[in-house]
Design a protein around this nucleic acid. Structure first.
Lengths: 251, 251
DNA sequence: GCATACAAGATTGTTGACAATCCTACAAAG
DNA sequence: CTTTGTAGGATTGTCAACAATCTTGTATGC
């Protein structure tokens, strides 16, 4: 339908977030939550739009009970806000809130990568990361544009988060990643930024290889902080980043 | 009824966590969740104990719907685990999981205190912190034992978290604090540890006063890491820290 | 012309009942 | 004596309807 929307959907698939956290568990509310989160991230529901329970219940051919639970799950992930007696509306994070989320991610990505660097069994993770970083390097050298770059970066992040020994950290990072998925494309827009991103990843791999947790943490943190600043700059220039349309009423 | 239980209840009240996050919103499921979380933290439900929906519905004189929602809220906070078709059981975090939570808190408390130190309007927070730290210093000098010490530390943490400009960070920290409330008393057991804790707080205040975000972050992180190690040591010595009884069946 | 009050419709919160699944106890076979 | 299969009760998951609240459109007053 729409180019931006398509790329967002591909990004979601590449990120593996939907599958990673819920789809296989086969609980009805979780399945519904997964499908709804895909729509929100893809921009099918505009920020600020109200989501009615009965409409979804009819669409998914279930009762309102599972729908309600699914909406609470989305609230937990920050994709909708639920107001008492007024239902769920798609969140529209302000620039300040996006910055907040990135600040938290900077700290926790730092912890994640430090833990991995200090893990005696990190060789396996490295084996998964190395070919991806090699692809990234090649793409950057060839000056290639496009979606592929973003997808590789998401894969790298997913591999690192999956490998994380701290289950609760993994959970929080997944949740935060879903919340910033809508803005993740903004961080790699210019060729210079991509070149710097590649350098960051190479240095991170080096630090993990050496088992240097402190360096791994510092690099991860810098990387997210850079993404944060880039995303904020992009948001300030274009206040409506993903969804062009501003539909508020029912579809 | 039981001394340990009493002190846990006082601690919960002093921490202000229940009130801070839910009680005033007056939604029925949230009220129920608050009361249940008090019971879990106080040890009225033993770890591993199964919680049945119908029993709670009868007790609170509501239908099972709000009870279900309340249990999902507790799951979000990590106080119960919900298994498909098997309901909610009170979580019994392993030592490894407690360490995980403390590791996350170390990072995020660091972010919190750095943000506060870099906040131009930090004077107001300082004004609230200073008398408490003074009380702490006095207690330590007098070599006083007892609950008061723990309560002051909780107040300090609550003031800092409340003052945090990052709303999402505040939310995550509240949630993590609830999860470790059961173990927070373990960190300050010996007089030496308390003296060191006082020093940490004094240095933290100093850093905030100067606007030295990096130092504030480092100190906060050290403090949580120390608490973590102390809590783990205590847990290894006494595997059943809060609730003495090991009731698994219905009460 | 604009703001306010009211009424009808729509939407969420809650309830009680039904269906599907799980756990326990007991019996039968190896 | 241990293990496997089965039946009953118990518990969670889902549904449809009712009550309480909110939103929207309209009319009225200034």
């Amino acid at each position: 339908m729409n180019r931006v929307l398509d790329s967002a959907e591909r990004l979601l698939a590449a990120s593996g977030l939907a599958r990673a956290s819920r789809a296989l568990t086969s609980s009805l509310p979780e399945q519904i939550a997964t499908r709804l989160s895909e729509r929100i991230v893809a921009g099918a529901y505009a920020p600020g739009q109200r989501i009615m329970e009965q409409a979804l219940a009819t669409e998914f051919a279930v009762s309102r009970g599972p729908i309600r639970e699914a909406l609470r799950l989305l609230e937990r992930d920050g994709l909708v806000a639920i107001l008492a007696r007024r239902g769920a509306i798609v969140t529209n994070p302000s620039i300040a809130e996006v910055k907040e989320i990135f600040d938290i991610r900077a700290m926790l990505n730092g912890l994640r990568d430090r833990l991995i660097a200090e893990d005696p069994q990190r060789a396996k993770v490295l084996a998964a990361l190395e070919p991806e970083v090699a692809r990234l390097t090649r793409l950057a050298r060839e000056g290639k544009q496009g979606q592929e770059y973003v997808e590789i970066v998401w894969t790298l992040n997913r591999v690192l988060t999956e490998a994380c020994a701290n289950a609760r950290l993994k959970h929080i990072l997944d949740s935060l990643a879903r919340q910033t998925l809508r803005y993740s494309q903004l961080g790699l827009s210019t060729p210079e930024r991509r070149r710097q991103s590649v350098q960051h990843w190479q240095k991170l791999l080096e630090a993990i290889r050496k088992g240097d947790g402190a360096t791994a943490e510092r690099i991860a943190r810098e990387r997210v902080t850079d993404s944060r600043d880039a995303a904020i700059r992009a948001l300030q220039e274009a206040p409506q980043p993903v969804s062009a349309a501003k539909k508020r009423g029912p579809a």
